[in-house]
């Protein structure tokens, strides 16, 4: 056996031995690596509450409001508007959910149809009552209705009024003669039907 043959044999056995050691070390370390697993696990639970804007009118009786202006009993007397104020138990209910804490909504009212000449139709919402919670709206007061949307309730945040009559805002209507006009000049005998439309809308 030459010197070179001896060296090759020694090299072969050394490498074989080292490979075996490395393999053993690797096998030994496998479970150690696997013990790095967590004894704790977490999972996200989520719920998304979406934006909502719902408005409804409720009444125990018919939601129709009838005004009858009394004719004068004596010649020369004015037309009597003193009974032209009605609260027919119509309530505004709403549910409002807003994303921004600073954002607000309002209830607007407008008339569909033509208000008879010589008269004004007013509406006033009461303070919110009932089972409602949250940032309920504030009534603006007595406002004249027209074909243009008018703010009736302001500053509504995320809230609910409760459902049904005695919850939310009670609406009162009033009919008044137009004092700014030539009074009787524009009044005429007629029967008119109007629709008052309410909308829950965002402030711009």
């Amino acid at each position: 056996m030459t010197f070179r043959q001896k060296n090759v044999g020694w090299y072969f056995y050394t490498m074989k031995f080292l490979s075996a050691i490395l393999l053993l070390i690797f096998i030994a370390l496998v479970p150690v690596f696997t013990t790095g697993q967590e004894r704790q696990a977490d999972h996200k639970v989520n719920i998304e509450i979406p934006e909502v804007a719902l408005l409804g009118l409720v009444s125990d009786e018919a939601s129709q409001v009838n005004f009858t202006v009394t004719a004068p009993n004596e010649a020369g007397s004015p037309v009597d508007f003193s009974n032209a104020s009605q609260n027919n138990g119509v309530w505004i209910n709403y549910t409002s959910i807003i994303r921004s804490q600073n954002h607000r909504r309002k209830v607007m009212a407008m008339v569909q149809g033509e208000i008879p000449a010589g008269v004004h139709l007013f509406v006033e919402a009461s303070e919110a009552t009932g089972v409602g919670k949250g940032m309920l709206g504030k009534p603006v007061g007595k406002v004249a209705l027209s074909g243009q949307a008018t703010e009736v309730i302001s500053d509504i945040g995320s809230c609910f009024t409760g459902k049904g009559s005695s919850n939310g805002h009670l609406l009162s209507y009033e009919l008044e003669a137009d004092n700014s006009a030539n009074d009787f000049v524009t009044l005429e005998h007629s029967q008119t039907t109007l629709h008052v439309v309410y909308t829950l809308t965002d402030y711009n």
Binding site: R39, Q40, A41, D42, H43, K44, V45, N46, I47, E48, I49, P50, E51, V52, T95, S96, I97, I98, R99, S100, Q101, K133, G134, M135, G157, S158, C159, F160
Partner: peptide, 25 residues
């Protein structure tokens, strides 16, 4: 199974999130 209660429209529109952590001893 999970049960969630106590939410209301008064909380406003929002995404709520919590993390449930399970630990084995």
């Amino acid at each position: 199974s999970f049960q969630l209660s106590g939410f209301s429209v008064t909380m406003g529109a929002k995404d709520f999130e919590t993390s449930l952590v399970f630990t084995v001893y």
